[in-house]
Write a protein that binds this DNA or RNA. Structure first.
Lengths: 209, 209
DNA sequence: GGCTAATAGATATTTTTTTCTCTTTTGGCA
DNA sequence: TGCCAAAAGAGAAAAAAATATCTATTAGCC
């Protein structure tokens, strides 16, 4: 969905007004029917022989994803990954607003990254008690992640986007979305292994004949 | 799979020798049966009433993922995200070796990040012609990504891990693994929307009665 | 020694997802 | 005006994934 959205936003900038599933499928190198099913999920309806109104589609996808109203977030851990997220411009378009950034490294506290001042993690309770964000983004080292999670949960935050490489243990009413960086690498390696095996098989067959 | 692996490596460090699916399922907060099916995919066999030998399982997962032999990579784009990947220690354990780093920003060229010297992207052809890496990791801005992809493909690289927010157009024999940063956010927002709706429904029902 | 419960392993069932096929609409073109 | 082809839309079939159920083994305990 985010990929469709990104593409559609760009197409709108280019002045286009309608788009067909064929066009999107070509761009994404996937089957036409997959795109159509995805689009149907959003509940939008198009015009036969023409396609979908781009604005319409954008609105429906935004609404489907719940990105119409701003999602207020706090980022915990301003290391390399945290900084990368702060630098990810598209978030603002997706309705994600990182309102505060915390770290425990005294050399970082008080500094600014991309216009965000970094606060001392020790002050998180007082700072977030009132302005409670919707989600917490955890970008701290693996060993601290559970501790940080416990803290934000105790502040009443119920949605966590976790970039640390651990499975957080949380109460039932808390939802964690875990990002496994190595997941993509795993996918690629498996495809790579498979692809190379196929190549080797093909060569062996050729040599035989 | 990477998550199992990570957990298992840590358990091995803690001196454990066997593990049961129950244990892994508890840790990951997923169904026992899912874990068992995943493990069966790797072809390992365990001992009833005991569990799996951790070393055995690690080896089988590594082999399943094709992580036994080192994957040699070049990283293109040393921005915040590229730097974050360079700082991701686990890659070395997963057999990923980032051999070279390229950027086009003259203020970065010649600098070092985490022990990796940053080379001028203009020199990529001469540098990679001989020591051809297995994969290219693309961390450049969206607008440059296709250009960079074309370049590495022309160098004979056939596997690409793409962190840019575009769908690369590549020849048939090239495999691209695309990482959609906002994908996790989309998942979380949808879960969040759903969760909040349920909560609201429950409250309405309560108020009624 | 025999019972019990924990665990792997195999098979069956259900559900979900993916894929295919057919239908309907309609803009463009001759 | 009427045909054609490109597109959405709906429904069916096939495939895959998730889940449940059953069986076999065996360590630990009484």
């Amino acid at each position: 969905m985010p990929t469709y959205l990104h593409k559609l936003l760009r197409m709108r900038l280019e002045g286009k007004e309608v788009v067909s599933t064929t066009e999107l499928a070509d761009y994404m190198n996937i089957e036409l029917i997959v795109v159509r099913k995805d689009i149907m999920l959003t509940g939008v309806s198009g015009r036969r022989r023409v396609g979908y109104d781009i604005n319409d589609l954008i609105n429906h996808i935004m609404s489907f994803l719940g990105w119409e109203q701003t999602i207020r977030a706090t980022l915990i851990g301003a290391g390399a990954l945290g900084a990368a997220l702060l630098g990810y411009d598209d978030f603002s378009r997706y309705g994600l607003l990182i309102e505060s950034v915390f770290d425990c490294d005294s050399s970082k506290i008080g500094q600014e990254i991309r216009g965000h001042e970094i606060y001392d993690i020790a002050t998180i309770r007082t700072r977030l008690k009132l302005a409670r964000p919707d989600i917490a983004i955890i970008c701290v080292p693996n060993l601290s992640a559970q501790l940080v999670a416990d803290q934000v949960i105790s502040l009443g935050i119920r949605y966590i986007w976790n970039f640390a490489n651990v499975c957080l243990q949380v109460p039932e009413n808390v939802i964690v979305q875990r990002e496994v960086i190595a997941g993509g690498l795993a996918m690629l390696s498996v495809k790579m292994k498979y692809d190379r095996n196929q190549l080797a098989d093909a060569r062996a067959l050729e040599a035989e004949s």
